[in-house]
Design a binder for these strands. Structure first.
Lengths: 224, 224
DNA sequence: CGCATAGTTCGTTCCTCATCGAAGCATTCT
DNA sequence: AGAATGCTTCGATGAGGAACGAACTATGCG
């Protein structure tokens, strides 16, 4: 009978299958309408609406009205990180995974995590950036290294533009159980990958699929 | 309607208040018995047992039988990380902390934790005993120091009487987030506090309320 | 305006699951 | 052996909450 932050309240919000599906769908980073989320969750519109108000009320989602549409999105990277953490446990503990299909495989390699890149590629990238001393990490903290500004400027990313959110954050990867790069820098890198058309997003999925030349370019820039 | 790891299943396990309390109690890293967890969660033993089997079944907990005791512990650091992540969101999202009432305040200062003392007083006591080298701790382990036997004999506590249970154990304090002393020694000290009438137990509560002279005596013996 | 689309609110139904008492095992103490 | 402790299982009860249809509000379109 203890005090403290009400973790049961938060967890029970995620603990309903319909709501979990909605949150999962929103991990793609794009805000979705109530109808789209109802479809994703496999429930009727009234039911979805009820769930959505609970998620808003609980602080996990934000909503933006645009005309007669209401766009729902994750409340922030911290929420995304929590979902990733839960996904990791579910994966590890998970019921005897059937053999991973091609989509699972793609997800494992590279996927969107809210607004940045996750998966093996992302983990490898962070490792490399740290090894090159572009980024410096101690424990869960990640900071810009001395050569960070010039390094990223060379590929068209300004690390100082957005002061509000932390530039670097570590985000635990459920498929690899190691950290990848989040924060505004992580988001900027994902933007670049998509803008340069190195990769495309799989429809209705979080998977990010690199084209062969795109993968080469990515490796040249971030893994060399 | 997407596939993937069953995050709702995991989250709903954490989403019950009783189970959340248990998990929280186990975040200290020390395994606890079913009875202790029932007390922590504020439910009856059968209810706790039911919850515990669900947590085991769900892969969040492991259990180790030791004689007629069954020690429950978190299944691993990944699970602990998930709880931390959820706690972080709950903390960020739920700032509606009511101001602590008088009973909460008393609970914070001193309360019963199963069979030993918890709260600020208990944490201070353990700190002091370690500082005086009466007890020796490394990490979560606590052992008797060289002067322990004579020190406790002087106040009428024989540290060698009950061999079955561990003499010293660390127990994480939710109000202070630091360890206090459990085990037979912790129990013996609580017994002494109550026997000497330094303090009384609040009815239907875990709070332990020291009388002014009782508090002085306690401080003289354990905090000097 | 009227009609269509997007979403919320209401009321009802239904089912899961948390809860506890009582009884049943298992282990240890005497 | 018998008693005591620690814990689990069983069965009954009850409350919460997820679900949807129908009705209601709001925005956009012709």
């Amino acid at each position: 009978m203890r005090e403290g932050p009400d973790i049961a309240r938060i967890a029970s919000l995620v603990g309903d299958p319909a709501r979990a599906n909605m949150l999962n769908a929103l991990m793609g980073g794009t805000a979705l309408t109530a109808s789209e989320l109802a479809l994703e969750a496999g429930v009727s519109l009234p039911t979805a609406s009820s769930h959505l108000s609970k998620l808003i009320e609980g602080g996990l989602l934000t909503v933006a009205s645009q005309g007669r549409h209401r766009y729902y999105g994750l409340a922030g990277p911290q929420v995304a990180g929590m979902i990733e953490a839960i996904t990791g446990v579910a994966e590890a503990v998970g019921p005897k995974r059937v053999r991973p299909g091609p989509r699972d495989r793609a997800m494992r390699v590279a996927r969107v995590c809210y607004d940045h890149l996750a998966g093996e590629q992302a983990v490898a990238m962070l490792d490399r950036l740290v090894a090159k001393n572009v980024l410096v990490r101690d424990e869960q903290q990640i900071r810009l290294g001395p050569s960070a500004a010039s390094h990223f400027a060379a590929i068209g990313i300004d690390v100082y533009t957005k002061p509000r959110r932390p530039v670097c954050r570590a985000c635990l990867d459920w498929s690899v159980r190691r950290s990848h790069l989040a924060g505004t820098l992580g988001a900027a890198i994902l933007d670049k990958i998509l803008a340069e058309k190195w990769a495309r997003r799989e429809k209705d999925s979080r998977a990010v699929i690199f084209s062969p030349p795109g993968k080469q370019a990515f490796e040249r820039v971030f893994l060399s």
